[in-house]
Design a binder for these strands. Structure first.
Lengths: 182, 182
DNA sequence: CATATTTGGTCTGGTGAACAGACCAAATTG
DNA sequence: CAATTTGGTCTGTTCACCAGACCAAATATG
């Protein structure tokens, strides 16, 4: 935020957190970063967000130290910092709340602990190991509520396969007409 | 949200949750409800939010089933429903994130488990009891980072004393000149 | 290598939301 | 009963968001 009206004088750190991640789109962008989305165009393809706003949000997240920008290879890549990865519990609990307390509720995505294969509980803990794994130790896969018709961009398609969080997501289409047909 | 552009086609329930609690001010209002704030004027006094926007947010939260409105006694009171109380982990983890990952970080408020007196850890668990207490079993009190100068409205003053979450907060001033002086 | 396309943005104009503040009826206080 | 508080609604103005035009650099294609 930092723009317009600052509601940071609230004594509570909740307000501070909301200044960083409380704006429209911001948490969805961060969630996509957990999924391994790293590039501007992929974020746009998955979120249907205007270029100007995406650019502004990325700048805010860079300033806040939630993301870093890696310009080493051709097109820039946006990566979560440690502060960004610390947002995982927020995203997970909010997502679970949405699952339980909004209409219709079959999970669209399921998270499991890579080390033991167990699905996480509602608190984000691994029931087998008895603690909350770091997001980098998790695997996402589509759940029973998943409806592939809902979104059909390249990021959504890539996420139809189980994927290790925080590892880069391959959004290059698998060339349906050219390869494997010859 | 439901207004303007719906970003509910995201396959993820995170987007659904954000439609309800992702708008400006909404989570701060819900947090105040946990603190025991129940009335329109008290929310306004504590949050410095415009009347029109507070009114709109309360309507959204009522529609979403996060709050109920009790008109039984004179002025209306807004109370958290079960769905609303289920937002506690979201508020706690987001607040903790703000505490650790924004500048300056001494907790402004500390939460402890009423049953055993132990302070909660960063996950919202009671270290003594080994699980996360319901918010109704918690006590808030000012922490070392608390700066009473920052806000001096009647709600902030009432919260300078330890207070049981979800129980009504008494915001009537303690009449500094009239009582206890005679 | 020349050209076409994709990528990663910036910069408009138009529209909807937030803000400060006026206004008002009902409830409460004195 | 009069004054004040409460719980709103209704302005006009400012600000954020959106769609879409535009553009330079990087990449892909012939």
């Amino acid at each position: 935020m930092a723009l317009g009206t600052e509601y940071d004088r609230q004594g509570c750190y909740l307000a501070r957190a909301l200044e960083v991640v409380g704006e429209r789109w911001t948490l969805l962008i961060v969630r996509d970063c957990f999924y391994g989305v790293r590039r501007f165009s992929d974020l746009r393809a998955h979120l249907d967000i205007s270029r100007a706003v995406l650019s502004a949000r990325l700048d805010t997240l860079l300033d806040a130290g939630v993301l870093t920008r890696d310009d080493s290879g051709g097109h820039p890549e946006y990566l979560l910092t440690e502060a960004g990865r610390a947002l995982w519990p927020v995203i997970y609990t909010l997502s679970k709340w949405g699952e339980h307390h909004t209409s219709g509720s079959h999970p669209t995505r399921i998270f499991s602990h890579a080390a033991c294969g167990t699905d996480l509980d509602d608190h984000g803990d691994c029931p087998t190991c008895g603690h909350a794994p770091d997001p980098g130790e998790l695997i996402v896969r589509p759940g029973p509520g998943h409806n592939p018709m809902r979104r059909s961009d390249r990021v959504a398609r890539a996420l139809e396969q189980p994927h290790h969080l925080l590892t880069p997501l391959d959004t290059r289409e698998s060339a349906p007409e050219r390869a494997s047909r010859s």
